[in-house]
Amino acid sequence: MSTSNITFRKTGSSIKVTPVDEVSLEARAASLATRSIKTDSKRAALHLAIRCMDLTTLEGADTPEKVASLCQKAKRPDPSNHDVPSVAAVCIYPEMVHHAVEATEGSSVKVASVAGAFPSGLSTIEARTADIADAVKRGADEIDIVLNRSAFLAGDEQRAFEEIVASKDACGKAHLKVILEVGELGSYDKIRQASMLAMTAGADFIKTSTGKISQASSLPRVLCMAEAVRDFAQQTDISVGIKAAGGIRTAKQAWHYLVVIGETLGTEWLSPEMFRIGASSLLNDVLLQLKRLDSGSYSGPDYVTVD
């Protein structure tokens, strides 16, 4: 299926999916990554990266204290410098939602919860929607679910679609992010199709990865998704956000993502409402770069907090 229209029974809408050429897509991403930035603009770019960041902890060993500590870092990434903005959100398991809600109270930091049999998505849809509803009830502003790759890759796109529709219903007012787990899809064509499917089903955001497999976000994959977002906006007038997650560790990488989003989708997407970077270790590198800008000399890991 290199080129197709996806039609879904529920909406009856037909969405055109454009095929993707891997080599040329990757060349374009690589070329965007050569854009360099003015020194005067670096601070603005780094602050933007922080404002778009989702700090994440998704471990079985997560505890209320661990979450509280993450939230503190989210609210005030650099205790020594109040100019540094808060991050966009913290991303945690449903069990931890109320701790996070408490810890971020009064701040701009949103609480995002994974839900719906994360990271596989392989439980009944009833169990998954119940999980989502529960996380929302606990106070989550945003819900991150996974695409049913099992159904999608087996050719049952309709089922994958309907499950997202049901999940969206279960979200109520909370924003729905659909994780495509791009590393499992096998090709850019599939990433583009999955992006279109998720957006058509009502996703507010499409997200690259769970962070639970080694293949995660990459610049070309996000470029591929951004092109789908742009097509979807053109076809429907609906603007869907993008979240790049996994494998983004350096300020420079974050900058490359901002360039890809900015050049593909435009300024409207360069805000936490439309773009997120999910990461755990990125923040400290961004903070080190900011310190370098302030002091003119290179800082070290002991001068930023571990969490």
Binding site: S36, I37, K38, A44, A45, L48, G262, T267
Partner: peptide
């Protein structure tokens, strides 16, 4: 450039 509109300028590198 959209990024410039946003206050981020590419370097005159």
């Amino acid at each position: 450039s959209s990024l410039e509109d946003f206050g981020i300028e590419y370097a005159s590198a």
